[in-house]
Write a protein that binds this DNA or RNA. Structure first.
Lengths: 227, 227
DNA sequence: TAATAGGTAATTGTATCCAAAATTCACCGC
DNA sequence: GCGGTGAATTTTGGATACAATTACCTATTA
């Protein structure tokens, strides 16, 4: 993301977009839920204008869909599309990882190690929210040795989509041990300079997440809502 | 003032965004050029509101950069970033092509053939504008057998970026014969079911375009760097 | 003479207001 | 009783007016 640390001077659309994004990602705003500008404006106690800009932004991010004069709704992905999102993650993350490994220094490995430790700590406390954040941080840290800012920006956009489903996943995920081990192996392979092995592990890691998650979403949709 | 064309069913921001996008892609708005909302609003004879929405959209597409209260400017990519754009194209297009080839039917091949013929015709007439459009159509046709709508959407966004530079490229490109042959070979391999060979060709094809183009942009920036 | 501070002008961001489009409900006709 | 058409309400889209922030220019002081 663009690093504007002065968040005191954040514009209203920015603030609202961030909050709405969080509400969508957390599932507070359900898939397919209709969005009315005025209701949101009243809720945030601002005019409809900054709300409109925030909605436009989220629309560009793909989190909500907008019809011309017909209002908007929270984007709902089909199972195929959810799978596609994870295939894109595999494609781009593995490419980044392959470029990153030869450039990794002890400092990079140390950073990954530090995050891993915090992750394992959050396992034990069953702090899924923190685990999700750290998971994202860890994956980013794996690629920090390589520049590729445009690619990372693209990946961030895709990750916003995937995060919606990963979060559902985390909250009901039983077996976190495999992921834990995979994260360690990934780093070990990278440290040993075994680029292709590490990439294969990363690919399998995301693939496994995808499979588990698709199963879960499918089950949820079959029982839960009729849509 | 300005002739209001078919704005009937299209929203104003949409129209303005499309026009601005075209102006940026065509080079009419140069890299790094500052953008003032009011000037554009006056030019299009509308208020600043739809202009702002259009600018927001282009910002999300990465064509312009926006600072908080500081105005915006047309995005200027470094040589590395331009290379990155083409690397992303390779990554995504090859993945799409690999998935598409096994699904291609005679109808798909016929469509590609038809576009190829028009392309070769436009070679002879030296119609670079038409060639550019057909080039994009051809690449899309290669992947038409596969669904993957989200991936295609992503690719379209990347292609918008690359098109800025491809257009410069086309207008000064001397040797179009290699591209011509490569396009044929690509299709022949795909028809023969030689998936990996076809993907390798596609990768090399885009890679060659990237190399030529980087050379050209580097030369252009070295001479007239003042802009 | 140069640097800093203050003021002014320009540009962006937000709010309120008005118009246009769409959906829904009711009434009329079949 | 059912279907279609029209009007009214709801909701979005666009314009104008106003506030806030920023940058530039000028003046004053060291």
């Amino acid at each position: 993301m663009v690093g504007k640390r002065a968040l005191s001077r954040q514009s209203l659309p920015e603030i609202i977009a961030n909050d709405l994004r969080e509400r969508i990602l957390s599932g507070e705003m359900a898939e397919g839920e209709a969005i009315r500008q005025e209701a949101l404006a009243e809720e945030y106690d601002v005019s409809r204008m900054p709300v409109r800009e925030a909605l436009k932004r989220l629309n560009a991010e793909g989190l909500i869909q907008w019809a011309n004069n017909r209002g908007g709704s929270v984007t709902k992905h089909s199972l195929d599309e959810i799978g596609e999102i994870f295939d894109l993650r595999i494609l781009i993350e593995v490419d980044l990882f392959r470029r990153a490994i030869p450039l990794m220094t002890p400092a990079h490995f140390a950073e990954c190690d530090a995050i891993l430790e915090q992750m394992e700590e959050s396992y034990d406390r069953d702090d899924v929210a923190r685990w999700g954040i750290l998971n994202h941080e860890y994956h980013s840290a794996l690629y920090s040795s390589v520049g590729r800012s445009l690619t990372k920006e693209l990946l961030d956009r895709i990750n916003v989509q995937s995060e919606r489903y990963v979060r559902m996943h985390l909250s009901v995920m039983k077996q976190r041990e495999p992921a834990k081990q995979e994260h360690r192996q990934l780093l070990d392979c990278a440290r040993a300079g075994q680029t292709e092995e590490a990439c294969a592990l990363l690919s399998a890691h995301i693939e496994r997440t995808k499979d588990q998650l698709l199963q879960m979403v499918a089950a949820k949709r079959a029982t839960g809502d009729g849509a």
